[in-house]
Amino acid sequence: MGLSLATAERWVQRWELQQQRYATDREERFTVIADIIEHVTADHAGRPLVVDVGCGPGSLAARLSRRLPGAEIVAVDRDPLLLELARTHHADAARYVDAEIGEPGWTKTLGLDRPLDAAVSTTALHYLSPEALQRTYRQLAALMRPGGVLVNGDHLPHDDSRVAEVAGCVGRRRAERQRAFAHEDWASWWTAVAQDPELADLLAERREREPSTATTAPAPLSLAAHVRLLRQAGFGQAGAVWQYGDSHVLVAIR
């Protein structure tokens, strides 16, 4: 089932472009996340241990690996196709784990031999229900050393509808100036992937793992709701350290 490097490179490059439609100032957000991890691990003895939650095709893991070459990165996702793209195109960036985030026992599959210094995620946790998200935050807090951090870059809307409307406008205008909407969208990317015979087996496996009944994605939780869940999960402090529109980088300290 292994992919050729050329195939993985082609689809990861297209993924990178289509994701620019959805994450305002995506590259800057990656840089901010790396800044935080570098800062938190600067004075900590030993090799930093970082888990990338919902890693997809390895976009964040690859950037963290380049920025922090001494770190050990464990990247986890449930999607077999995206994981295979990551394993092939970003083979040296991380150790990749196939697991369902938030499900009972998923953290045991990570094979960690010491407490985490950091957990990171980007544009991934919003698909979890509030109950699954709270469970995931608690599970990650239990794995983390005192002073470790959880860093989540995602769409975190404001509670106030008028402020949320203005923030959405700011994000869209920024994306328009960056010509982000010129790239293919999520649905188009997956439609194109389905035409590549080299990916047929991975797509079939992906379909087999999908629930037999369609489920509606939960409405995204607000920044304030995330902060509340993080504190309930055992993080002492939590708050946003970067924002553009409704795109935030949220940091929680164990």
Rank of each mutant, 00 (worst) to 15 (best):
W186S: 11
A175H: 09
W189T: 09
R179L: 12
H158V: 02
Q178C: 06
H155Q: 10
H183F: 15
D185P: 05
H183P: 01
L150T: 04
V166W: 01
G153V: 03
D154H: 05
R162P: 00
D159N: 13
H155N: 12
Q178N: 10
N152H: 05
D185S: 13
W189H: 15
F181P: 09
G147V: 06
R145F: 00
H183C: 03
H155Y: 15
D159I: 02
E165S: 14
S161M: 06
L150E: 03
H183R: 11
H158W: 11
A175T: 04
D159P: 03
R177I: 01
D160N: 12
P146M: 06
H158T: 04
S161N: 00
H155D: 08
V170I: 15
R173N: 09
G171T: 04
G147I: 08
V151P: 00
H155M: 11
E176M: 13
R177H: 10
R179I: 01
A167K: 04
P146R: 15
V163I: 14
L150V: 14
G168P: 03
V166E: 07
R173Q: 14
E184V: 10
H183K: 08
S188Y: 05
R174K: 08
S161D: 10
P146F: 06
L150R: 02
R177G: 02
L156P: 02
V149P: 01
A164F: 02
W190G: 05
A175D: 12
D160E: 11
A180N: 10
D159H: 09
H158Y: 05
V163F: 03
G171L: 04
S161K: 09
D185C: 10
A175N: 14
P157A: 03
R145E: 07
R177P: 02
Q178S: 13
V166A: 14
E176T: 08
A180F: 05
P146E: 12
V151K: 03
A167N: 01
H155W: 13
R173K: 11
V170Q: 05
L150A: 14
V149A: 14
R173A: 11
C169F: 06
R172P: 00
A187C: 08
Q178Y: 07
D160F: 05
R177F: 11
V163E: 06
R162I: 12
W186C: 05
R179H: 13
C169A: 13
L150H: 03
L150W: 04
W186A: 12
L150Q: 02
G147R: 04
Q178W: 05
D185V: 02
L156Y: 04
S188N: 10
A167H: 04
A167V: 00
D185Y: 06
S161H: 10
N152S: 12
A175Q: 07
E165F: 04
D185H: 12
L150S: 12
V163M: 08
A182H: 12
W190Q: 13
S188L: 11
W189K: 09
A180Y: 05
D185F: 06
W186H: 15
G147W: 08
Q178D: 15
D160K: 03
H158R: 09
F181Y: 15
H158K: 08
L150G: 08
N152W: 03
V166T: 11
E176P: 01
D185T: 07
W186E: 15
A187L: 11
D159L: 07
V149N: 04
A164W: 01
